[in-house]
């Protein structure tokens, strides 16, 4: 097997899926611009032509509506927003339309739509170009949400998202693009709704989302030096999330840390925490701890970014404090 980068794995997923299924097409403002999508869409327009890889005018509301319509008509469209922030401009079509169609029309028409949006934090680009908004989508019935953290999953979850009959929000993070690992050639799927134990352990469960997975792994390695065995779970799908995997782990460890590089209030970490507390209250040795961003918009200045973003150090602190109370 050869290794691929995270962005290279996304690119290969797009290419192989488009080769194998002519119903798949891409609509994405700026997808031909490397500064937005890195090499994750390189030359797709040249390979598949401007009919199947469309770089439209800046019209997010229109774009999102067009892909919803194309999905209704039987295509498997992928709409790409090079920043999650731009997707917000057209969010009506996702929340009121795409998410509701299956239910409102009692399953008559499916909505095989993939919405890919990229998180681009930490580039001194301030509040409108750095947001992580997964919780908004996780909140909406009718949407599925995936956030791969590794090259293998980036490709496998992309293919699953495109093939899924429901609207899937696929969120990737520019901070992960240079990660590399073995990635098989050819189409394969990573199931939507299944998390993965990245590092097994019995003292504490760390549930990590997207870019926090490598940080949780780092934290786990550091903690091991003190004899603390942390189990790192990569959630991979936020909706529907793998409740069984997380509950089983917390049953074993009795301690839960959730790491999500997004806002705290009503965030994904809050949902996971609530679910675990509701189901395993008496088995918890300490209250679950959320390691998240503060409820503050992203600042531009590099010194404020330092204070704003979280990393393995924050996870380590949270684990130590939790175990101290055991």
């Amino acid at each position: 097997m050869r290794t691929l980068s995270y962005s290279g794995a996304i690119l290969e997923g797009f290419r192989e899926k488009m080769e194998s299924d002519e119903d798949v097409f891409i609509l994405g403002q700026g997808v031909t611009n490397p500064w937005y999508v890195g090499d994750s869409m390189q030359d797709l327009d040249k390979i598949f032509g401007a009919e199947r890889v469309i770089d439209p005018p800046v019209s997010e509301q229109g774009m999102n509506g067009v892909v919803v319509g194309a999905a209704l008509a039987g295509m498997k469209p992928i709409v790409v927003h090079p920043r999650v922030d731009f997707l917000v401009m057209g969010i009506e079509q996702i929340i009121n339309e795409a998410a509701n169609w299956s239910y409102m029309f009692d399953g008559q028409i499916s909505m095989p739509l993939t919405v890919r949006a990229i998180i681009n934090r930490g580039g001194e680009q301030a509040a409108q170009h750095s947001q992580a908004l997964q919780a908004i989508f996780m909140h909406i019935p009718g949407l599925k949400v995936v956030m791969p953290s590794s090259p293998y999953d980036a490709k496998g979850l992309l293919i699953s998202s495109i093939e899924d009959p429901d609207p899937v929000i696929y969120i990737d993070d520019r901070w992960l693009y240079d990660l590399t690992e073995d990635v098989p050639e050819g189409l394969y799927r990573v199931p939507i709704g299944k998390g993965k134990i990245r590092i097994p352990g019995e003292d504490v469960t760390i549930v990590a989302i997207s870019s926090m997975v490598p940080e949780a792994e780092k934290a786990s390695n550091v903690l091991l030096e003190d004899g603390i065995k942390a189990e790192v779970i990569d959630l991979r799908t936020l909706k529907p999330w793998d409740t069984e995997l997380v509950l089983d782990s917390v049953r074993k460890t009795g301690n839960l840390i959730i790491a999500d590089a997004a806002w705290r209030t009503a965030g994904s970490a809050a949902e996971i925490s609530a679910h675990v507390v509701e189901n395993l209250f008496s088995e918890l040795k300490a209250p679950p701890v959320r390691v998240t961003l503060p409820d503050v918009p992203a600042p531009a200045s590099r010194s404020l970014e330092e204070a704003y973003y979280i990393d393995s150090g924050d996870i380590i602190n949270a684990v130590r404090k939790t175990l101290d109370t055991n």
Partner: peptide
């Protein structure tokens, strides 16, 4: 502001674009 400094128009919170 472009430098992200306290003396900037928005104390460095907005940067060049804001």
């Amino acid at each position: 502001e472009i430098f992200g400094k306290v003396g900037g128009a928005n104390k460095g919170k907005g940067g060049s674009m804001h």
